[in-house]
Design a protein around this nucleic acid. Structure first.
Ligand SMILES: [Mn+2]
Ligand SMILES: [Mn+2]
Ligand SMILES: [Zn+2]
Ligand SMILES: [Zn+2]
Lengths: 128, 128
DNA sequence: ATATAAATAGGAATCATTCCTGATTATATT
DNA sequence: AATATAATCAGGAATGATTCCTATTTATAT
């Protein structure tokens, strides 16, 4: 795989944010550094970085969101503003061995907690 | 909310399957009963049923999938064929109180295990 | 039976994502 | 340093899922 400034920039942006952004958000950020970058290039590089295993993605509310944190972790998701925050549940992987479906090979686990974030539990307007 | 045969049919189809189908799959099923139904009607009724709280939805691999099982449960997802199977992890809700993010109101939890289903671990072709 | 608002069918519009193509560029080789 | 070549790119068209629109139909209250 050949080096490209576009791919490197996409990767750095993803590593530096905790916000689990969409491709479009990444696109805007890249544009502020490389104004001529195209959205297709951002998508292609996000896909390539995911194939390399250095970023992750998941779809949420009809849009793909990307995560530069590839370590095992879980997410808290605010149902109002869609904030997505990492957290590390303790003592889960050990206790989860109970109740797993039979004959399936489990490769990864994600726990998603949905609810209201700190902002949204006190304010009614969308903040994020 | 007025009764409609279309909504009732959508609801019954979702209650009777365990497959976590897409809107399009539901559309095909409804058509076999009400041949003139439109895809827009299926989407609208799926949304209304979700608002009522009698079905759930989540997006997966860029498409919305619907679930007629509104009881708390988790999913095993095959990364090869996208099979989505309910399971009930035991002893999770109690142990999960450790490690939750601060100041967030947790309303629901879902555990997703990804891996290979029984078919896919032995065959290479897509079955589902 | 009639009135009325809710729901529908069919199709257009939208939006995220992927695909395509001719131009550019990183990198290896001379 | 110049050249060759395949990878990558920019820009835009195509796709596919979902939502939106509107004239028509229909459930239901009176
Ligand atoms: Mn994360
Ligand atoms: Mn389910
Ligand atoms: Zn929030
Ligand atoms: Zn499978």
């Amino acid at each position: 795989m050949r080096y490209s400034e576009q791919r490197e920039t996409v990767f750095q942006i993803l590593k530096e944010t905790q916000s689990h952004p969409s491709a479009d958000w990444v696109y805007d950020k890249v544009k502020s550094i490389l104004p001529l970058v195209s959205l297709g290039t951002v998508y292609r590089n996000l896909g390539e970085l995911e194939d390399l295993g250095v970023i992750k993605s998941f779809s949420m509310k009809g849009a793909i969101r990307y995560d530069g944190n590839v370590a095992d972790h879980s997410h808290f998701i605010c149902r109002k503003c869609n904030l997505m925050m990492d957290f590390q549940p303790k003592d889960i992987s050990t206790s989860l061995h109970n109740g797993l479906p039979k004959n399936f090979i489990a490769e990864s686990m994600e726990i998603q907690i949905s609810g209201l974030c700190d902002n949204c539990k006190t304010h009614s307007k969308k903040r994020n």
